[in-house]
Amino acid sequence: MRKLVTAVVTAVTVALVSTSVIAGEWKKIRIGVEGAYPPFSSITADGKLVGFDIDIANALCAELGAECELVPQDWDGIIPALLAKKYDAIIASMSITEERKKKVAFTNKYYNTPAKFVRRKGSGIEISMEGLKGKTVGVQRATTHDNFITGEFGEAVDIKRYATQDEAYLDAVAGRLDLLLADSVAMDDGFLKTDQGKDFEFVGPGYSEVKYFGEGAGIAVRKEDQDLVDMLNKAIDAIRANGTYEKINSNYFEFDVYGG
């Protein structure tokens, strides 16, 4: 009996020690993704995660020689869940902003595309303080687009905030919104080129002010995991250099979304 107890204790200790060693070397990385932001991240009818963010995540893990587990998570709780260690990194088109940097560390950007407004064709709405007065604008809650519209036009427009970008599209089609504001690439592929978005079009310039939109989309990691930030930065550089990024990019877009 005593031997058995010792054996069990030893086995458990060995198991515990070895897992912590693996965690320290990042053999397995759990990655939080959103799944409601096509073409960057969406869930197919049979429940599979697909999109640019997903492919980038898998490519980075392959580059690092680590095993990846993708964890879908609602946008609203995506940073709290990272801090609660439900996963180790967020690859969900998250812009690198000052407010977020207070809570998490970011890698360098892995893409950067401007934000744009979308209007219904024939509505004739122009983008100016005058033109926006009294209009209803739909954005995804707590995104850079939300911050931008709140900060720049918050007094003039009625802002409707949605948990996901998909819900904003739904209400735009239903006719509850005059304008949408979101990432231009996400809206082009995720909405305008689809059947439900056929009556809509871009209007106004592309926005990419660093004050609101940061330096682009980066990977968020807990602040204490600086080693993971460094590893991911090297991996981003590596897939940029070896052509993997270009290959993924060309599966989704006709231009380089990495940005200048």
Partner: peptide
């Protein structure tokens, strides 16, 4: 709060998602 109305719960969701203090 689920359908874009900023009621008490909607306000809490905005504060949570802006400041990450659920």
């Amino acid at each position: 709060g689920v359908i874009t109305i900023v009621d008490l719960f909607g306000a809490a969701k905005i504060v949570n998602s802006r400041h990450f203090v659920p």
